[in-house]
């Protein structure tokens, strides 16, 4: 095929019919094979869109490594003249990086584990058993997903305040224990879909062998649901990690600070935090600039980013395996 094109390029007057045919097939494709042009367009589109997608992150990365001169120099667009790691050090110190990181992991991790537990139990109950009102329950679950959380937010806040768990991790633990955590409806539905696909025979066999309902759930169904558990775990973790609104409201406190904080919340208050830090720091703290705030942003997403690149296979394949699209 490549030969055909070179021929066409160098000796156009000697084109025979078959050559023309070949070229046409090469460019526009035939019934069996996609044409070169179409492939080219597809790849070009994908690469362009991919670049647009990555643009903010690339921008963040490059400008977080610039020093002040690079920022002001209009000839430097992308590649900084020197790799300025000091931005990261300063941003990290002003955000109290390690402490915030630990708290972030706790704030995201503990409710996530409880979410997996409660949602798997509820999903199993809905998938495995028939009982009156099941359809209504599924309807309410979907409704509670669509309903914005702001409606229930204020009474929940008052409730937490009354029972004294506002401003502590318990405010996240309680709802996730009762399968009402962030995006819990999605997780329930994922488990529901998954457990429906587990063959009933397996569970019945276990029951004939003397396992009770609960035992057959823990011993048979739960181990076979490993992909669903992983999916729910990853998504729940990421969503809790990125949730700043509710975290600020219930756990870290708006009116009074409770001491709980997370990287995302630190980022939200980055400007004021940084100016405070710059005042108290003895030396080396420059005033806030674009590079430093980009470095702060980078730091706050770095842990999940690393997690994503390590576990990307599970993230990306999760939706296939959890069977959201099956029926």
């Amino acid at each position: 095929m490549a030969q055909a094109t070179t021929k066409a390029a160098f000796r156009p007057h000697k084109l025979t019919e078959t050559d023309k045919d070949k070229i046409q097939r090469f460019l526009f494709g035939s019934k069996e094979k996609e044409g070169f042009l179409k492939q080219l367009v597809v790849y070009a589109l994908l690469i362009c869109i991919g670049f647009i997608y990555l643009y903010p992150i690339l921008y963040m990365l490059s400008s977080s490594l610039m020093n002040l001169d690079d920022l002001l120099d209009s000839s430097i667009n992308w590649i900084p003249s020197t790799l300025n790691i000091a931005n990261y050090a300063q941003a990290g110190r002003s955000m109290d990086f390690w402490k915030s990181l630990g708290m972030s992991i706790i704030i995201a991790g503990v409710p996530t584990i409880l979410n997996v537990l409660s949602c798997s139990i509820v999903g199993y109950g809905l998938a495995r058993f028939e009982f009156p009102g099941k359809k209504a329950i599924l309807g309410v679950i979907i409704f509670s997903f669509i309903l914005p959380s702001q409606v229930t937010m204020i009474p929940t806040y008052v409730l937490y305040n009354n029972i004294g768990i506002l401003g502590s991790l318990k405010a996240f633990i309680l709802p996730s224990l009762l399968a009402q955590g962030i995006n819990a409806p999605i997780f329930i539905l994922i488990f529901f879909q998954f457990f429906r696909q587990v063959p009933k025979v397996l569970i019945e066999a276990a029951q004939i062998d003397g396992a009770g309902y609960f035992k057959s759930f823990i011993r048979i169904s739960l181990p076979s649901a490993a992909p669903a558990i992983l999916t729910v775990f990853l998504f729940s973790f990421v969503w809790y990690w990125n949730e700043s609104y509710l975290t600020q409201m219930y756990v870290s406190g708006i009116m009074t600070e409770s001491g709980w904080t997370s990287l995302v919340i630190q980022l939200d208050k980055f400007a004021s935090n940084y100016s405070q830090y710059a005042q108290t720091a003895q030396s080396g703290a420059t005033s806030l600039n674009e590079s430093i705030s980009m470095a702060g942003t980078m730091l706050s997403i770095l842990p999940v980013l690393i997690m994503y690149f390590v576990l990307q296979r599970y993230f990306v394949e999760s939706i296939d395996r959890a069977g959201i699209t099956g029926e």
């Binding site: 990125n242 939200d268 706050s300 997690m307």
Partner: peptide, 9 residues
Amino acid sequence: PVIVVSGPV
């Protein structure tokens, strides 16, 4: 983006 997207970011 699903991983990264959050209000403050």
